[in-house]
Structure formats: C-alpha cells, structure tokens
C-alpha cells in the first residue's frame, strides 16, 4: 500500500505508527473515519482539548502583541485563567528564549524538510532563534498532570522537533546551519509551571535522529499490507477510536489512567496542519 500523493509525515503520524502500525494504516492510508469515543469521560476529554486550544491561542495572541489584560478577559474558564496567570507569573517565553535584541521568534510556526525522500513537517508552539544561533523550542503541555521526563523523551515529538529545527531552520539563522548543540526543547506545563522539562540537543542526537527517522519513514513507505500489524500492547487500544474496527474491545479507557492527555495522539499541532477550508460559500 503506497502513501497517498503529497503525503507529509508529522510527529503525530510517526507516533501513531510507532504505537500501532495498524492505526497509522487506518488513519493515514485508508483515511478511515471512525467516530468512537477515545477516552472517558468524553465530556472531560472534550473540555481538555478545548482548554488546550484556548491556551495555545492566548499565547499566540500575546505573541502578536495583544494587551495581556484583554487576553485575560476572554479567559472565562477558571482553569484557563489560572493557567494564564501562571504563564504571566513565570513568563516562560522570556525565561527560556531570552529577550535579547535580534532574536527571531514566532508562534504557531511550521517547518518542513525532506527525510528519506518524503516530507516531514512540524508546527511549533514557539520557535526562537537568537542572534547567537541559540534555538529554543517551546511546547505547551496542558495535561492535568506533569508528564514524567522518561515518557517525554520517548515521544516522537522530542526527536522530530529539534531535528527539523536543525535540518530546516537555517533560514532563521541568517542562512547559517544550525548547530544542534545550540538547540533546546522545553516542555512547559501550565499545571506545573515551576517544573518544565528542558531537553538539550546535540550533534550525536541529531545524527541518531536522522538515522532513526530515515529508517522509520523508509520502513513505512515500503510497507505492504502485512507491514501494518496491530499492536501487541492491547492497553493502547483502550484509547484508540478504532478499537471496534479491530475487535479490540468496546468501551474507551479512562482519562485518569493516562500519563498525560496528549498521549492520545491528537496533538494540537495536527488539528490544523491542513490548509484552511474556510471562506468558501457553497451554493
């Protein structure tokens, strides 16, 4: 089974493959829509997604220059307001990216590069490049619990984001190659604002990630029908919408059993990776 024309890999799709090759096949190759519940209580799951999106938007509003008070007024939800107050108290952007003149910085920024003959894309919550060539990647994690560092290090996002910053970010550094040892990835948790996860990068890791991602993408691109087996870890199926399709149970797992809500795979950056669809009037 070949990849659809123009297919772009992302950390979320690669994570899907690593978690369960069948899920990758169903979601991206067959584009199978399967609207079952992903996690229970579904109301709480939805609320977490909505709050996560709202927080991302508030930070983006700050980055484009909206006054902080105006942004705070729109935070009608108490939890969101608390997150925002943590954000203002800890000021993670300044804390991690610095405020030196000449620093380039964007929110919701996309990078894309070629790996193994295919395109790999990432959307960064915040990406900054200082005049010194120091690159900081900030990612907001709005789960209720602070994800342990070990779990974070295992995520594809932790490989893809710094890798792509080095591979595709030279134009942000005055067309000079980005030195992997100048790259830092920071996960910041509004629920645990004082304990961010700070992950340093380096040339060995970059080389290892390059090999790993090239092999992984090559493996997926060459896989035929049997190349997408179901995961042997059936606990994953409890948080997968395809569980009835795969005959792997009927009811969804509970949110509080997860390490973090973002383990569900629907990472915010994948929600609008595609080009917008609005603005057309259908007659």
């Amino acid at each position: 089974m070949t990849l659809p024309p123009g297919f772009q890999f992302s950390q979320a799709s690669l994570q899907d493959y690593v978690d369960c090759p069948r899920r990758f096949q169903l979601r991206y190759l067959l584009a199978l829509q399967w609207p079952a519940v992903q996690a229970e209580p579904v109301e709480e799951h939805e609320q977490r997604m909505v709050l996560g999106q709202a927080f991302h938007r508030m930070v983006q509003q700050r980055l484009v220059g909206l006054p902080e008070e105006a942004i705070a007024r729109a935070a009608s939800n108490a939890e969101l307001l608390r997150w925002w107050q943590s954000f203002l108290a800890y000021r993670p952007i300044t804390a991690f990216c610095g405020d030196q003149p000449g620093t380039w910085m964007r929110g919701e920024y996309m990078l894309a590069g070629g790996v193994g003959g295919h395109r790999l894309v990432a959307k960064y919550d915040v990406l900054s490049v200082a005049a010194t060539g120091q690159v900081t990647i900030l990612d907001w994690k709005t789960s209720t619990k602070r994800t342990p560092d070990d779990a974070l290090r295992e995520r594809l996002q932790t490989r893809v984001y710094p890798f792509l910053a080095v591979q595709a970010g030279a134009h942000l550094n005055g067309d000079r190659p980005i030195d992997p040892s100048h790259v830092t990835l920071v996960y910041w948790f509004p629920e645990a604002p004082g304990s961010p996860a700070r992950i340093a990068y380096g040339p060995e890791q970059y080389a290892a990630d390059h090999r790993y991602l090239t092999d992984l993408i090559g493996l997926i691109a060459l896989a035929e029908g049997d190349g997408f087996p179901m995961t042997q870890d059936e606990s994953r199926c409890r948080f997968c919408v395809y569980r009835s399709y795969c005959d792997r149970g009927s009811t969804a797992g509970r949110l509080d059993e997860l390490i973090a809500a973002w383990d569900l795979g629907a990472a915010p950056e994948d929600i609008d990776l595609d080009f917008e669809q609005i603005g057309e009037i259908a007659f």
Partner: peptide, 20 residues
C-alpha cells in the same frame, strides 16, 4: 508537497475569507 522542495518554512495558502 513535493518531496524535492527545499527545506524551510511553509508558505501559506489561503482565501481572503479564510484569512478573515
């Protein structure tokens, strides 16, 4: 979406309504 495209940022493709 062609894989031979140079690495880097992404152009935005939009309608005026979408931008709005």
């Amino acid at each position: 979406r062609r894989p031979d495209r140079p690495s880097g940022g992404e152009p935005t493709i939009a309608t005026v309504g979408g931008l709005a």
